[in-house]
C-alpha cells in the first residue's frame, strides 16, 4: 500500500482535472436536472410554471405538496406498493435461498440442468406471459385486484435472478462449518437454517433489495391486475398525470413525492444494489 500511494494515482497523467469536472458537471446536470425540475415545479403554481419554468420558485408554493399528502389516494397507493413489494420480496427471497442451497451445496445428478432452468428463466420477458397471467390470476385463481395476485407472479419472475446471484454466494462459503455441524448430528435442514442462512445474509439482502425495487417500480402487471383502491404508486402517478393533465404543478408534486421512497431506499442501500448488479453481470 505504501508503495502504491507514492506512485501517481491511476490515470492522472495527461488528465486535465478542470475538463473532468466540467464534463462531470454537465453529465450530472443532465441526469439530475429533470428530477430537480420536477421537484421545483411542485413548489410553483401553474401560472408560475407557464411564465418562468426555470430558476428557483418565487414565491415557494407548498399547496401542491400539502394537497397530495393530505389527499387519501397517495397514501392508499403507497400502502399497496409497500405491501406488494414486501410480499414479493419475502416469497422470492425465501424460495430463492432455499432453491440455491442444494444447487450450491449438494452433489447430485442433473444439478447443472436444474440450474439451467433458472438461468433460462432470466430470458423470459414478462411481457410475453402477461395476458395469460391476467386470465390465470383473475379467472382461474380469483385473485384479481388483490395484493397476493400481483405479488406471487412478481416473485416468480424475480426467482431466476435471485437464484443466479445467490448460488455462487453460497458456494463460496467455507465447507468446514457445515461439516462440523453434520458431524455433531445436525440435519441438513438444520444446517441450512442455523448456519448457511445467517452466513449468507449479505447476499440475501442484495437480492432482497433488487426484488423490492423491481416490485416497487413495476408497471405492466399491476396495470392489468389492479384497479381503483388497489392501485400501486406507479399506476397512481400515471393515472394522476392523465386525469389532471392541466394541473402540471400538481402532477409534478405527486410524481416527486412518489419517487422519494425509492430514492431513499437506494441511497440507504446503495452498496448492496450496486454489488448485486455487478454480481449479476459477472455471473
Amino acid at each position: 500500500m505504501s508503495v502504491r500511494t507514492n506512485l501517481a494515482p491511476r490515470g492522472k497523467r495527461g488528465g486535465n482535472n478542470v475538463l473532468v469536472y466540467l464534463v462531470s458537471l454537465i453529465v450530472v446536470a443532465i441526469t439530475v436536472g429533470p428530477v430537480l425540475y420536477g421537484a421545483m415545479g411542485g413548489f410553483r403554481t401553474n401560472a408560475q410554471l407557464a411564465e418562468k419554468p426555470t430558476g428557483l420558485p418565487d414565491p415557494w408554493v407548498t399547496s401542491n405538496y400539502s394537497g397530495v399528502l393530505s389527499g387519501g389516494s397517495f397514501w392508499t397507493y403507497a400502502v399497496n406498493s409497500t405491501v406488494i413489494a414486501v410480499i414479493t420480496t419475502l416469497v422470492a427471497v425465501v424460495f430463492g435461498v432455499m432453491a440455491a442451497y442444494p444447487l450450491a451445496r449438494y452433489k447430485f445428478k442433473g444439478r447443472e440442468a436444474l440450474f439451467m432452468v433458472f438461468v433460462l428463466g432470466l430470458l423470459f420477458p414478462a411481457a410475453v406471459a402477461v395476458i395469460p397471467l391476467f386470465i390465470l390470476v383473475t379467472r382461474d385463481l380469483g385473485m384479481g385486484n388483490t395484493w397476493w395476485g400481483v405479488a406471487l407472479p412478481q416473485a416468480a419472475f424475480a426467482l431466476p435472478l435471485t437464484v443466479v446471484i445467490l448460488r455462487p454466494f453460497l458456494m463460496a462459503l467455507p465447507r468446514e462449518l457445515e461439516e462440523a455441524a453434520l458431524i455433531d448430528g445436525a440435519s441438513r435442514i438444520g444446517v441450512f437454517w442455523r448456519i448457511m442462512l445467517p452466513l449468507s445474509m449479505p447476499g440475501v439482502i442484495t437480492v432482497a433489495v433488487l426484488a423490492f425495487v423491481t416490485s416497487w417500480n413495476a408497471y405492466i402487471l399491476p396495470l392489468l391486475l389492479l384497479q381503483d383502491d388497489m392501485r400501486t404508486l406507479p399506476l397512481g402517478v400515471a393515472d394522476f398525470s392523465t386525469e389532471h393533465s392541466a394541473d402540471t404543478a400538481g402532477v409534478l408534486a405527486f410524481t416527486t413525492i412518489a419517487m422519494i421512497p425509492a430514492l431513499v431506499l437506494f441511497l440507504a442501500l446503495q452498496r448492496r444494489i450496486v454489488s448485486g448488479l455487478q454480481g449479476a453481470v459477472k455471473g
Binding site: 439530475v32 420536477g38 408497471y219 400515471a238 402540471t248 410524481t255 419517487m259
Partner: peptide
C-alpha cells in the same frame, strides 16, 4: 457523482416517463 449519475436508473420508468412527459 456516481450516486447522482445512477439516480435516473433507480426511478420507476413510469415516474421518469411522467416527468419527461411534462
Amino acid at each position: 457523482l456516481r450516486t447522482l449519475i445512477f439516480v435516473p436508473y433507480v426511478l420507476a420508468e413510469v415516474i421518469a416517463g411522467v416527468i419527461w412527459f411534462q
